[in-house]
């Protein structure tokens, strides 16, 4: 197997072409290159590591089945992101139906039809901490659980923003919502994390 830097240098189209010609290691390279992204998208939707890994596996099983029909005239990564998002949302709905996740509502005003927040979003004035480093160490320990408790729509947007440095337009396209919605969700996600983590 090639090393990871070599994997990144090879384009997805090349790897898919090699796989279609019978090189089974090319699929492994695609997994090395993109499994983390599939996991991160699923984590953004589900907020749960075990479920996210399960979805990431399912994404690649589906891709493995369908790759021979993938014509390569599209971005493989876009295709993968969509599959990951859809499978993760299916899983989220399934969990919700089975009562595995408690939905947490925010006290903050709800989004309007166009995605912009209707009410004011107060930003607490930052208070200088006597021990900033200690606070941030605690932050790193608590961030996972607070992410899990964020509403899924906010978490999705914030995770996509932090994943691969996606810009707002790409996030809006992937989530199928408006640019204003993405701006609002990311801002509200960060503000909610600040509030919960008392930063």
């Amino acid at each position: 197997m090639s090393n990871s830097s070599e994997n990144i240098a090879v384009s997805d189209a090349d790897l898919i072409g090699r796989w279609k010609e019978g090189d089974s290691t090319a699929f492994d390279l695609l997994v090395d290159k993109h499994a983390g992204k599939a996991y991160q998208i699923a984590y953004g939707v589900l907020g749960n590591k075990e479920d996210a890994e399960e979805v990431a596996q399912d994404v690649f099983v589906r891709i493995h089945r369908a790759l021979s029909r993938f014509r390569g005239d599209a971005e493989f990564s876009t295709w993968l992101y969509r599959i990951a998002l859809n499978l993760a949302r299916n899983k989220y709905r399934w969990n919700k139906v089975r009562g595995l996740r408690e939905m947490v509502s925010l006290d903050a005003p709800q989004e309007g039809e166009d995605g912009d927040s209707r009410g004011p979003m107060a930003v607490p004035a930052p208070k200088p901490s006597p021990d900033h480093e200690a606070i941030f160490r605690e932050l790193e320990q608590n961030i996972a659980s607070e992410l899990e408790n964020l509403p899924a729509a906010f978490r999705e947007a914030l995770v996509l923003r932090n994943m691969d440095d996606m810009d707002y337009h790409q996030i809006a396209s992937l989530l199928g919502c408006k640019l204003g919605t993405v701006k609002s969700r990311i801002a509200r996600a960060r503000e909610e994390l600040r509030r919960r983590l008392k930063l």
Binding site: W19, K20, G22, S24, F27, D28, V31, D32, A35, G36, Y39, Q40, Y43, K49, E53, A56, Q57, F60, V61, H64, R65, L67, S68, F136, L139, E140, I143, A144, L147, L158, V159, N162, M163
Partner: peptide, 28 residues
């Protein structure tokens, strides 16, 4: 902190490959 929390678990890629290998091969 969010980026750190998003790091995939160790060995996940290998588990994904293993799950794919258990599928029927449809490679042309």
């Amino acid at each position: 902190a969010v980026a750190d929390a998003l790091r995939p678990p160790a060995g996940m890629a290998e588990r994904v490959k293993s799950a794919c290998r258990q599928q029927p091969v449809r490679q042309p």
